[in-house]
Amino acid sequence: MNTKAYALYKKDFNSELRTRYAVNSLAMFIIVAISVILFSIGNEKISQSLTGGLFWVVIFFSAMSGLSRVFVSEEERGTSLALHLVAAPSTIFSGKLLFNVILVFCMNIIIAFLYSMLFEAFIIRNFSLFAVSFILGNIGLAVASTIIAAIISKAGAKGTLYPVLSFPILLPLILTSVQLTLLANQGAGFGDAKFELAIVFCYDVIILTGSYMLFDFVWKD
């Protein structure tokens, strides 16, 4: 099962390398979103809590612009039936999830890097706390957006529906992650943030379990 999931990931990765559809549009989206924020700030000084919030605004909308590709492209190219034949639903979900996790990590590392360069107030004072919350937050983001992508790939009006369906599901994760980013930027220790870290961890586990259990129903027509 694992080798099949990896093969599926390789297939997506190769087709992404060939077309560079998601990567190009994601990179441009990140640049556009950050420059809009920079333009609107102008010469004002913004507070630390605001940068933490804006950081997750950019992450959320970038995720919404790129992560639905994994399932939508299969439906658009009409290759989902072939996938039905070659692998079990959970394997397909694993492969797609792996691709999205890696995409989310690349995207968010770039966003974090650009943020710490471009925003004076965005200083990560406790790097290990930031890294842990970043990893947990990214996994939750990838899992939730992958299962929602599977749902919308079967529906009409895919592009507009995706953020609409994802936002309420991601809301607990985003609210907690904003808090964690703020704590890391203020230099708080792990002791102060253990409750928030536990929330994000629980969220990851719950959404991951729920997604694996429900994906069968989405995938089988």
Binding site: I148, I151, P168, I169, I207, G210, V218
Partner: peptide
């Protein structure tokens, strides 16, 4: 919609 409402309920 059943799948979505269960996922939403998880939150």
């Amino acid at each position: 919609s059943a799948v979505y409402s269960i996922i939403a309920f998880l939150t």
